[in-house]
Write a protein that binds this DNA or RNA. Structure first.
Length: 420
RNA sequence: GGGGGAAUGUCCCGAGCGGCAAAGGGGGCGGACUGUAAAUCCGCUGGCUAAGCCUUCGCAGGUUCGAGUCCUGCUUCCCCCA
């Protein structure tokens, strides 16, 4: 669909070329607006966690490119909608968050955007809006009279998300049925208040976005547009950003720059090109060169990906530092003093610290039981020597010149215990 | 309103004659092989002061030497009839 379309605007050209585009309601119309620098676009974010994770990153990048090409981006905080709770995940009798929790989450989330967008009062400066601004004031009767009458249930029933549920005879709660009305209303309200004329989001949001456009037409807004991005999975089919050790959070207090760098460094071969396009701002010819690398050489491309992606999120300094720590740790096998470090009183070393509890202390394993099992599987190392005896003791003799011991869990996770 | 079913190891799915730390998957983690990749193979996947002890099968009681399993009440969810 988008392949046949030749965009004139920088905005659409970049987005299509880099793989952000899944579907649009009107490529040509949107292209005109973007060419004139008249696009004001928003993406909505729920405030269900204290930080966004990499799953949201693709849409943040879309806002970034939008602004770069001379248009205005608006990240919308779902302060109002989160109070209702998006039931999309279903079955998970989602407990409702308190307004205080939502407020705290919102603070955490908004920090991220300043790294990708320039805020201010200028024409293309980004605005941070919260839909609580209008949603919490809604009155049910008024809402039904002013907005509800424009929704066609016939049409809503024909939407994919709804129809699938009905055909499979799965539960579809009234509140869920209404969620798209609220989101549609957001779009109209954003248009009236801030001149928003484009909503972007994941392809699963298509129905909700189009509902908003439709509502706008009935309520007399100018023409609104939709643009969705593909829902990302890794080449082996895993959901983007969810790992066992938890989600890949964007905020540094949830996930360190080092771990963030490692996440990108461990990208599967097949994903490297795609990720370079989506998650870095490197020029396209550089990306084409990097993704053409074969075999082990593709590791070079992965390092670039990791450093560039981390630099966008946490700053170039921290990205370079992580790259350097990784180089020393993995390529030279030395102990880089910039590895995560935990302080332990010197007295404990002289008294002798049990290996099992040392690994628990370092946060590498969850319990001594797990440490015990890992010893059996040969997964623990102290100063690069495999631990074979679970009763071994770490003493002052194991400290290096810097008064630290290196504990390793598997090939990739290392922590320094430093005497203090 | 009436009738019938379901809830299991805090990641998910899911078996479980009254002796159970509880089958089997998936996912995850570790090992081997590699390139900090993928694929493949192997191991692990309640806690602890560890030949023992403690805590787990929706919640609260009860029967029993002994309860995930039987009984009673409650909660939540699903299905059918009205």
């Amino acid at each position: 669909m988008s392949e046949t379309f030749e965009p004139k605007s920088e905005f659409l050209r970049v987005l299509i070329e880099r793989g952000y585009v899944h579907q649009s309601s009107d490529y040509a119309g949107l292209d005109e607006k973007a060419l004139a620098g008249e696009v004001v676009a928003y993406v909505g974010y729920d405030c269900t966690a204290p930080s966004l994770h990499v799953g949201s990153l693709i849409s943040i990048m879309m806002l970034h490119w939008l602004q770069k090409s001379g248009n205005k981006p608006i990240p919308l905080m779902g302060g109002g909608t989160t109070r209702v709770g998006d039931p999309s995940g279903r079955d998970e009798t989602r407990k409702l968050l308190t307004p205080e929790q939502i407020e705290a989450n919102k603070e955490g989330i908004r920090k991220v955007f300043s790294r990708f967008l320039a805020f201010g009062d200028g024409r293309t400066d980004a605005l941070m809006i919260d839909n609580a601004e209008w949603l919490t004031k809604l009155n049910y009767i008024d809402f039904l009279r002013d907005v509800g009458r424009h929704f066609s249930v016939n049409r809503m029933l024909s939407m994919d998300s709804v129809r699938m549920r009905l055909e499979r005879e799965q539960e579809l709660s009234f509140i869920e049925f209404n969620y798209m009305c609220l989101q549609g209303y957001d779009y109209v309200e954003l248009n009236r208040r801030y001149g928003v004329n484009l909503q972007m989001g994941g392809s699963d949001q298509w129905g909700n976005i189009v509902t908003g456009i439709d509502l706008g037409r009935r309520m007399g807004t100018p023409q609104l547009y939709a643009l969705t991005c593909p829902l990302l999975t890794t080449a082996s089919g895993a959901k983007m950003g969810k790992t066992a050790s938890g989600a890949i959070w964007l905020n540094e207090d949830q996930l360190s720059a080092w771990d963030y760098w490692q996440f990108w460094r461990n990208t599967e071969d097949a994903d490297v090109g795609r990720f370079l396009r989506l998650y870095t701002t490197l020029p396209m010819d550089e990306i084409r060169r990097l993704e053409a690398l074969q075999g082990a050489e593709i590791n070079e491309a992965k390092k670039v990906l990791a450093t560039e992606a981390t630099a966008l999120m946490h700053g170039r300094d921290k990205a370079e530092a992580a790259a350097e720590t990784a180089r020393r740790t993995f390529e030279e096998g030395q102990t880089a003093d910039s590895l995560p470090t935990i302080a332990v009183p010197a007295a404990e070393f002289s008294a002798g610290l049990g290996v099992l509890s040392a690994f628990v202390r370092a946060g590498l394993v969850a319990s001594t039981g797990e440490a015990r099992r890992q010893v059996k599987g040969g997964g623990l190392r102290v100063n690069d020597a495999v631990v074979t005896d679970e009763r071994a003791v770490i003493g002052a003799a194991d400290l290096n010149a810097d008064a630290a011991v290196k504990l390793s869990f598997g090939r990739k996770k290392h922590v320094l215990l430093k005497a203090s």
